[in-house]
């Protein structure tokens, strides 16, 4: 059969695949997951950018029938599209945890997620533990972190501290983590990161109908939030998934109807129809996971949980 080339970039690898012309998004996605040995597939997606807007490959539609960039090979980023409500309960496989760790770490370093200087130092110390193992002063000599990107540039600029001083600060915490294995260090990182206000939120610029006030809409694991343009930390208004009746769009307008019929219907405009489609897609996916978490675990999840528990116990013994 005729094929076309696809390049898939994960947080720590690049892979190339030959896809059959007739393949649906799901065929490619499943192949990537199998190649990675990833079973907790529901958090992830294949992302691409088209005309400056980020989009996710649809599973049920043919790859070539989607509005993907015309390039050879076609480039996709394999990324977490949805986030768990509690990392320690939901991320079971080590590979899943590792991919989340890498993605969230990049978001923090790139300042897409705001993090206070104190917490960035603590997070950096866990990242160092994950990479270098236990601290050994005989081996980890001053300057050993010189090549690592560990803190956001904003934090580095904010203080009059030398690279050496930062390294000392991080190492003081790092030395405290002795005995923590790589997967544990990455999980500790995620447990702290998930409490940051901007963690796991997809933000969109929106305009409100009447007075044209610019606002931000945030979609995350718990629901939909509305923020002022200058405050991404605390929403002015929140709609939990369980309190929403219906979400719909028509062209650039999007409507959220609360379950409570007396409550005000929230209407706004996004910049493009394409963005509304993406917002609704994220709402459906997040709501689906929200419902799944509140049901009895499937057999597959039960098995994976049991396996993860066994694996953890085995590792602890080894360690």
């Amino acid at each position: 059969p005729k094929t076309f080339k696809v390049q898939v970039i994960t947080m720590d690898a690049e892979m190339e695949f030959s896809c059959e012309m007739k393949w649906k998004g799901k065929d490619l996605f499943d192949l990537v997951c199998r190649t990675l040995g990833l079973r907790e597939t529901w958090f992830f997606g294949l992302q691409y950018t088209i005309k400056g807007v980020c989009a996710w490959l649809k599973m049920e539609k043919k790859v070539l029938e989607q509005e993907i960039p015309k390039e050879d090979p076609v480039k996709f980023h394999f990324l977490a599209k949805f986030y768990p409500e509690k990392v320690e309960e939901e991320l079971l496989q080590e590979i899943t945890q590792h991919l989340f760790f890498l993605q969230v770490k990049k978001q923090i370093l790139d300042e897409e997620i705001y993090c206070s200087p104190e917490v960035t130092v603590l997070l950096a110390s866990y990242a160092v533990q994950a990479k270098y193992g236990d601290y050994d002063p005989a081996f980890h000599k001053p300057g050993f972190l010189a090549q690592d990107e560990l803190l956001p540039k904003r934090v580095l600029k904010q203080y009059q501290m030398t690279v050496h001083m930062w390294e000392e600060k991080i190492t003081a915490w790092y030395a405290e983590h002795r005995g923590i294995a790589r997967d544990e260090a990455e999980m500790n990182y995620l447990k702290i990161a998930q409490d940051l206000a901007m963690y796991g939120v997809n933000y969109f610029s929106i305009e409100q109908n009447k007075n044209h006030t610019d606002l931000l809409l945030g979609v995350d694991a718990k629901g939909i939030h509305v923020y002022s343009i200058d405050n991404r930390f605390s929403p002015n208004k929140s709609f939990e998934w369980s309190a929403i009746r219906n979400i719909s769009y028509s062209e650039k307008e999007l409507t959220i109807k609360p379950l409570d019929k007396k409550a005000e219907v929230f209407k706004f405009f996004s910049s493009q129809l394409k963005v509304n489609k993406l917002i609704l897609q994220l709402c459906i996916g997040n709501h689906d996971l929200f419902m799944k978490r509140r049901r009895v675990d499937s057999i597959e999840i039960q098995q994976m949980k049991a396996q993860a528990k066994e694996e953890k116990a085995r590792k602890k013994m080894e360690h």
Binding site: W241, I244, R245, N246, I247, S248, Y249, S250, E251, L259, L273, N276, K277, L280, C283, I284, H287, D288, M291, R295
Partner: peptide, 22 residues
């Protein structure tokens, strides 16, 4: 529970989605 009436319209009923999964 997800309905696309035309290419520029879409609607998702969270209530129906919940009912169908119970």
């Amino acid at each position: 529970y997800f309905a696309r009436k035309a290419n520029h319209k879409g609607s998702y009923s969270l209530v129906d989605a919940l009912k169908s999964k119970v």
